[in-house]
Lab assay of single mutants.
Amino acid sequence: TGYYDVLGVKPDASDNELKKAYRKMALKFHPDKNPDGAEQFKQISQAYEVLSDEKKRQIYDQ
């Protein structure tokens, strides 16, 4: 599964769309709200870390 799929956004998503999707998913799977969501929360955080950084995103998109 790709990072875009993890966040539920298209590859041409804007920074604002990425942030909005990340916040929505992070709230849904945060371990405090969803004890079984810890692994998914890590994936969401990693996806956002890469896609929100312009240089990392360019490398990922290659």
Rank of each mutant, 00 (worst) to 15 (best):
Q62I: 10
R57L: 03
P35L: 05
K55D: 07
Y48I: 03
K28G: 05
E54W: 14
S52K: 07
I59Y: 11
N16W: 15
D36N: 13
F41M: 08
Q58V: 09
G8Y: 02
N16Q: 14
A26H: 14
K42W: 09
K33L: 14
Y48F: 09
K55L: 09
P11Y: 10
A26L: 15
K28T: 08
G37I: 05
D5N: 10
L27Q: 12
K56R: 12
V50W: 07
S52P: 00
K20C: 13
L7D: 02
E39I: 08
K19D: 09
A26F: 15
P35D: 04
R57W: 02
L51V: 04
V9S: 02
A47M: 00
I44K: 01
D15P: 15
G37A: 12
K42C: 09
Y22M: 06
G37H: 12
S52N: 04
Q58A: 14
E17W: 05
T1C: 15
L18W: 00
S14P: 06
P35M: 04
Y4F: 07
Y60Q: 02
N34F: 07
D61V: 03
K19Y: 14
P31Q: 08
K10N: 11
Y22L: 03
I59V: 13
I44D: 01
D15H: 15
Y60F: 03
K56I: 05
G2K: 12
E54F: 13
K33P: 01
K19A: 12
S14Y: 02
F29M: 05
A47V: 11
Q62W: 06
N34L: 05
N34E: 04
A38W: 13
G2I: 11
S14M: 03
D15Q: 15
R23C: 15
F29L: 03
K20D: 15
E17S: 03
K33G: 06
D53S: 08
Y48C: 05
L7H: 00
R57F: 02
E17L: 03
E17T: 02
H30F: 05
D36G: 11
V6A: 06
D12A: 06
V6R: 06
Q62M: 11
E49N: 10
Y60L: 03
Y22I: 05
E17V: 03
G8Q: 06
E54G: 14
D32E: 09
N34W: 08
P31G: 07
G2T: 15
R57I: 03
F29S: 01
P11E: 05
G2R: 12
N16L: 14
I44Q: 00
A21I: 05
Y4L: 03
T1G: 12
Y4V: 02
Y3E: 02
V9E: 02
N16D: 15
K55E: 09
H30W: 05
Q62Y: 06
S52E: 05
Q58S: 10
K19E: 14
A13K: 00
L27N: 13
E54A: 15
H30Y: 02
Q43H: 09
T1L: 12
E39N: 07
L7Q: 01
Q43V: 13
A26V: 14
Y4H: 05
A26K: 09
D36P: 04
D5Q: 11
D61W: 03
K19W: 12
Q43C: 14
F41C: 06
L18Q: 01
R23S: 12
L51D: 01
K56Q: 11
L27F: 09
H30Q: 07
K10I: 03
Q46D: 10
V50C: 08
Q40W: 13
K42A: 10
D53W: 04
Y60D: 00
S14W: 02
Y4G: 01
D15W: 15
K10F: 07
V6D: 03
S14V: 03
D32G: 10
A21P: 00
Q40I: 14
P35G: 06
K19F: 12
D53Y: 04
K33Q: 09
K24T: 09
K42I: 09
G2V: 06
F41W: 15
Y22F: 14
K19H: 10
V50Y: 07
D36H: 10
E17D: 11
Y60R: 02
Q58G: 08
E39Y: 09
G2W: 15
D15C: 14
D12I: 05
R57M: 06
D32F: 13
G8F: 03
D12Y: 07
Y60P: 01
D32R: 11
P35S: 06
I59E: 14
A47H: 00
L18Y: 03
K10T: 10
V9N: 00
F41I: 04
P11V: 07
D5I: 07
K42M: 12
L27A: 14
G37D: 12
G37C: 13
Y3K: 02
R57N: 04
Q58N: 09
Q46E: 14
H30R: 07
D5R: 08
D5V: 09
Y60G: 02
Y3I: 04
Q40M: 15
Y48S: 02
Q62N: 10
Y60H: 04
L51H: 01
L51K: 04
K55S: 10
Y60K: 06
L51F: 02
K33S: 11
Y22N: 02
D12W: 14
V9M: 01
A21W: 03
E17C: 08
K20P: 00
Y48T: 02
D36F: 11
E54M: 13
P31W: 07
V6I: 15
G8R: 04
N16R: 12
A21E: 00
L7C: 06
V6P: 03
N34C: 10
P31T: 09
M25H: 07
Q40F: 14
A38M: 10
V6S: 02
S45L: 15
K33R: 13
A21Y: 04
L7N: 01
T1E: 07
Q43D: 04
D15A: 15
K42F: 10
E54H: 15
L27T: 08
Q46S: 06
K28A: 08
Q62A: 13
S45Y: 11
S52H: 08
K28D: 05
K10E: 07
I59G: 08
Q46Y: 10
Q46H: 12
D15K: 13
K28E: 08
N16C: 15
P11S: 09
L18E: 00
K56Y: 06
K42Y: 11
K56S: 10
Y22T: 00
E39A: 09
L7K: 02
F41Y: 12
F41T: 02
K28R: 07
P11L: 06
L51G: 02
K42T: 07
S52W: 04
D5S: 09
L51S: 00
Q46T: 11
N16S: 14
T1Y: 15
K28M: 10
L18G: 00
S14A: 05
E49F: 12
L7Y: 00
E54V: 15
G8V: 02
K55T: 14
Y22S: 00
L7R: 00
V6Y: 04
K24N: 13
L27E: 14
A47G: 01
G37Y: 15
K10V: 03
E49G: 07
A38D: 08
E49Q: 11
M25G: 07
K33F: 15
K24W: 09
K56F: 06
A26W: 15
G2L: 12
G37M: 10
Q58T: 09
G2P: 10
G2N: 15
S45F: 11
K56L: 12
E17Y: 03
Q43L: 15
D12E: 06
K20Q: 14
K28N: 07
D12F: 08
D36T: 08
A26T: 09
M25Y: 04
N16I: 14
D61Q: 01
P31C: 11
D15S: 14
Y3M: 03
Q58M: 10
A21V: 04
I59P: 04
D53Q: 06
V50E: 03
E17Q: 08
Y22C: 07
S14N: 10
V50Q: 03
P11R: 10
E49V: 07
D12C: 15
K33M: 11
N34M: 07
K20W: 08
M25L: 15
I44R: 00
G37T: 11
E17I: 05
D15R: 13
P35N: 05
V50I: 11
R57C: 04
E17K: 05
P31M: 08
G2D: 14
A47F: 03
A21Q: 05
V9L: 08
P31F: 08
S14C: 07
D61T: 02
L18P: 00
L18F: 00
H30A: 10
K19N: 06
K42S: 09
A47L: 01
E39V: 10
K55V: 13
A26G: 05
Q46G: 03
K20M: 13
D32W: 10
K20T: 12
G8P: 00
A21K: 02
V6F: 05
Q58F: 11
Q43P: 03
Y3A: 03
D5M: 09
R57G: 01
D12G: 12
N16F: 13
G8A: 05
V50R: 03
K20N: 13
R57T: 04
N34Q: 04
K33C: 15
